[in-house]
């Protein structure tokens, strides 16, 4: 779980969360692939450079949806039930993520919007690789619940 998150009720537009870092190495990719295949090690564009090259890619790439789950867990760390029941994520995959990439997750508050269920916190989110290049960009939001 993420450490050092602010109280969500204190967040205002322009505020950023402390960045979160996640590695996507071969082991993480293989573990995710085993999860996808029901425990089997298979060769595909995510796990094998040669298969990826035959598909027109320069080398193996991580599944784009893999790190989206990092964003969901991060938002759950921050907003708890307000993300699990009312949360949204919308992302565009702009660059491939390669085995060995170190991802930085960033989130900045765009808006606090009042709606029927309460106050919605909307974040602009991004995943940057170790060269600070955005690989996935988009938004995430959830409801502020009184604790």
């Amino acid at each position: 779980m993420s450490q050092g998150l602010p109280r969500p009720a204190d967040l205002r537009p322009g505020d950023s969360l402390p960045p979160l870092y996640r590695e996507i190495g071969w082991e993480e990719i293989r573990r995710f692939n085993r999860y996808v295949t029901g425990g089997n090690d298979t060769k595909n564009i995510h796990t094998d450079d040669e298969v990826a090259r035959r598909a027109g890619l320069p080398r193996a790439v991580a599944a784009g949806r893999h790190p989206v789950a990092f964003i969901a867990e991060w938002m759950t760390d921050l907003l708890g039930a307000g993300f699990l029941a009312g949360g949204e994520i919308e992302v565009t995959f702009v660059k491939p993520i390669y085995p060995g990439d170190r991802l930085q997750l960033t989130a900045t508050v765009n808006e606090r919007a009042e709606e029927e269920g309460g106050t919605r916190l909307l974040f602009e989110v991004a995943l940057l690789n170790q060269e600070n290049v955005p690989v996935t960009v988009g938004s995430a939001s959830g409801l502020l619940l009184s604790r």
């Binding site: 595909n44 599944a63 009312g86």
Partner: peptide, 25 residues
């Protein structure tokens, strides 16, 4: 993708966008 694979022969899929809405766990 699992449901696609139950019904289609798929080599691999390149995703461009993904959007989720969580109503309840």
């Amino acid at each position: 993708l699992a449901i696609y694979d139950e019904n289609f022969r798929r080599f691999g899929t390149i995703h461009a966008k993904l959007a989720y809405r969580f109503h309840r766990p």
